[in-house]
Nucleic acid binder design. Sequence first.
DNA 1: CGAGGTTGGCTAATTCATATAGCCTTTGCC
DNA 2: GGCAAAGGCTATATGAATTAGCCAACCTCG
Lengths: 189, 189
Amino acid sequence: MPAPPKTNDDAVVGAALDLVARGGVDALTMPDVAQAVGVKTPSLYKRFESRDALLAAVERRALEMVADRLARVPKGRGPKEHARALATAFRAFAHEHPRLYPLVFTARADDATQAARTKAVATLLETLGHLAGTEHALHAARTLTAFLHGFITMELSSAFRLGGSPSDAFDYGLDLFFDRFTERLERQA
Amino acid sequence: MPAPPKTNDDAVVGAALDLVARGGVDALTMPDVAQAVGVKTPSLYKRFESRDALLAAVERRALEMVADRLARVPKGRGPKEHARALATAFRAFAHEHPRLYPLVFTARADDATQAARTKAVATLLETLGHLAGTEHALHAARTLTAFLHGFITMELSSAFRLGGSPSDAFDYGLDLFFDRFTERLERQA
DNA sequence: CGAGGTTGGCTAATTCATATAGCCTTTGCC
DNA sequence: GGCAAAGGCTATATGAATTAGCCAACCTCG
């Protein structure tokens, strides 16, 4: 029934994501997105209810990028190595996409976003189950994720100004976390 | 030489802070601030170069609130108790001012902001020196701060949706951190 | 094969916030 | 008494978000 579309939802989200990646959230303007996909501004509203709805879609896409990235981390030798590799991959994503990273933990509580988030941590949760025990996996995952997110946010916001190497501090924190599970693991072995 | 001012910088920042506290950063609009302090919009530009400059001042004020709050935490029995109390106070601030908290770690690198930040962590840094040893104080402070910030951000953004008590997870993470220093402390005693 | 409904585009227009220009008043000081 | 500067004000420009209303294309049915 329709007329020939000049673009599609995915392309719009892609263009928006690109703008955010380059200039941060403020760079996401409807005129710029429209130009990028080759339509006039009002046409975007046929696809997304508002700029905010589009931003939500962009956030979801960013979340999927993270989830994808984490899913590709090889299991490697054991749960400890895997968990550590996940942490490193997460941080690497943030360094590669510093303007995208902040989108990952915004206060959006809609179902679609939460689902994407859940998927992103699934791998971590499973691996930490092996490390901390299933009954503590959730607490452990929250602790580790909180550390990672906090560390990265501070790093990206230039909060580390008192000298010293941030990467060393990162390793320090990771060691502190994982050392906790060393004994448990050796007992299992 | 001047004419009688109808307001002053502090009042403007206060009004702006109030707006942010109620409605988040987006609620900080120049017309609303102007109305709150009883002047017309353009007059604000005689005091602050731009909305962003005003926001920077608000962020600094929020940072000062945090620093103040932390400085009031009693030293109590020992460094471990003090550090734990600092962590709790920090989280309490975030819960009391959920719209203000996100301002604390924004990516603003100007000197004034950094100075305010430095002051806010000074107490923590000192106490962690006692716990982790002076040479590791910075790493330890970064690890703890990262955990706190990450945890709080996730908490405020409703990222904890998989059930379980966030407060329990918080204690779990804090225990994991502080247990590390128990042995060291007992050796000293 | 033509009528119609639907999708998705467009132009025009509205609203609202940031920001600038330029003017005017008050008042401390000489 | 007059002047310089701070700080207010009105009028405007700019630009983003969003809505209204129109139009064309294309698939489906009769």
